[in-house]
């Protein structure tokens, strides 16, 4: 039996909103030691989502037997929208479940809402992702990255990211013209989440699809900062840290044809 109780529904609501436009169906893997993990790849095989919610993400967590819960994320999102962000949220499943029970509780108002979501058999490929060596790692305010990704998408379907030891430059080259945004590395000791940190082994110049970057920044409400790890001619990793877990995106780059 699985029983995972979140102190607030907001984490799960934000996580599902962050991934449901990239993948329609996914398997939730549940185990006593790892909590809930997800690996899902978008249909074009360009973007991979890796979610980890450790048992410490939950107020209470038990999972007597490893479970795989196949979910339609649009349906899950419909149900999660029924609860308030500050409600308690509990996920419950039997050992051989054909449905997932989702319970919201507002202890102040004595309101309990219960929903049952039908599960599906989902046959999906799983990719092995080794801990990558990277040429550079950038940590910046998640909102600043979201603004660049959204703004530059209006100019071009590709966004070039160039990193040196003291700045990150985003460049778009489109039919109406070109644009660039430079963010300089800075340490804000009063408000560390406003810092822009660059850890550089080697300068990087990579290009990504603007559409995918705009899917990634849907995770912005989950964390104050995002860490981007880049390596020449390899997929980039974008990480939003959660309390006791993470939401990561791996994005394949574009290359000169």
């Amino acid at each position: 039996m699985l029983e995972g109780k979140f102190e607030t529904a907001s984490t799960m609501k934000k996580v599902i909103e962050a991934i449901k436009d990239s993948v329609k169906l996914c398997n939730l893997n549940c185990s006593q030691n790892d909590g809930i993990t997800v690996q899902a790849i978008d249909d074009s095989r360009v973007l991979l989502i890796a979610l980890k919610l450790d048992p410490s993400c939950f107020q209470e967590f038990r999972c007597d037997k490893d479970l795989v819960l196949g979910l339609d994320l649009e349906s899950l999102s419909k149900i999660l929208r029924q609860g308030n962000p500050e409600d308690y949220l509990t996920l419950i499943a039997e050992d051989s479940p054909d449905s997932l029970l989702i319970v919201f509780e507002d202890s102040k108002k004595d309101r309990i809402s219960e929903f049952s979501l039908k599960l599906m058999d989902i046959d999906s490929d799983v990719l092995t992702i080794d801990e990558m060596e990277h040429d550079c790692a950038i940590t910046l305010p998640a909102a600043a990255f979201a603004k660049v990704a959204r703004d530059m998408k209006t100019l071009s379907e590709s966004l070039q990211i160039l990193v040196t030891k003291d700045s990150v430059k985003f460049k778009a080259d489109g039919s109406i013209g070109t644009g660039s945004v430079i963010l300089r590395a800075r340490t804000n000791l009063d408000d560390t989440k406003e810092s822009i940190l660059i850890d550089l082994n080697k300068p990087v110049n990579l290009t990504f699809g603007a559409k995918y970057l705009n899917d990634i920044v849907k995770a912005t409400p989950l964390a104050d900062t995002v860490t981007i790890k880049l390596t020449d001619k390899a997929p980039a990793m974008f990480e939003y840290k959660l309390q006791g877990g993470f939401l990561r995106y791996y994005l394949a780059p574009k290359f000169e044809d």
Binding site: R45, V46, T128, T207, Y250, A252, F255, E256
Partner: peptide, 14 residues
């Protein structure tokens, strides 16, 4: 002209 690469050319199936 830029061409989009695929994740499956970097990561192997588990």
């Amino acid at each position: 002209k830029m061409k989009q690469s695929s994740l499956t050319s970097f990561f192997t199936k588990a």
